[in-house]
């Protein structure tokens, strides 16, 4: 009986660890994300909490938070150069985020996670 309860406790801890600390969540490196955002001039058009020509990081985070495909959607936004609507109503292709080395998806995903982590 004692053995069984110990097993249940261990299984619960493992489940909790998997749910709460997925590899993606562990990967968030805030400083690296901030540096990449700075390098790519993201904040010329996006404030953290303030809308500029584009929506704030907070607005994006709130739009996608809780959605299963949130990270993928933001990654697509950062890498596809798709058309976006600016604050003045005009349209423009979004800048494709550049990394060193090029197309380093780990860095892009980290930036997407950083945007998603923005809190009010």
């Amino acid at each position: 009986m004692k053995y069984q309860s110990r097993m249940i406790a261990m299984a619960s801890m493992a489940a909790f660890a998997l749910a709460g600390f997925s590899p993606a969540a562990l990967a968030l490196d805030v400083e690296a994300a901030k540096d990449l955002a700075e390098q790519n001039n993201c904040k010329q058009c996006h404030g953290i909490k303030k809308d500029k020509d584009g929506p704030s990081f907070l607005k994006t985070a709130e739009k996608y938070r809780g959605k299963a495909n949130a990270e993928d959607e933001i990654v697509k936004h950062l890498t596809s150069g798709k058309k976006v609507k600016l604050a003045d109503g005009s349209e423009e292709n979004h800048k494709i985020v550049k990394t060193m080395p090029p197309n380093d998806m780990a860095q892009i995903k980290n930036l997407a996670q950083y945007i998603l982590s923005t809190q009010p």
Binding site: E38, K43, Q44, G47, I48, K49, K50
Partner: peptide, 9 residues
């Protein structure tokens, strides 16, 4: 941080 990109954070 580049000048002019600082904001409310």
């Amino acid at each position: 941080k580049k000048p002019g990109t600082d904001d409310e954070e």
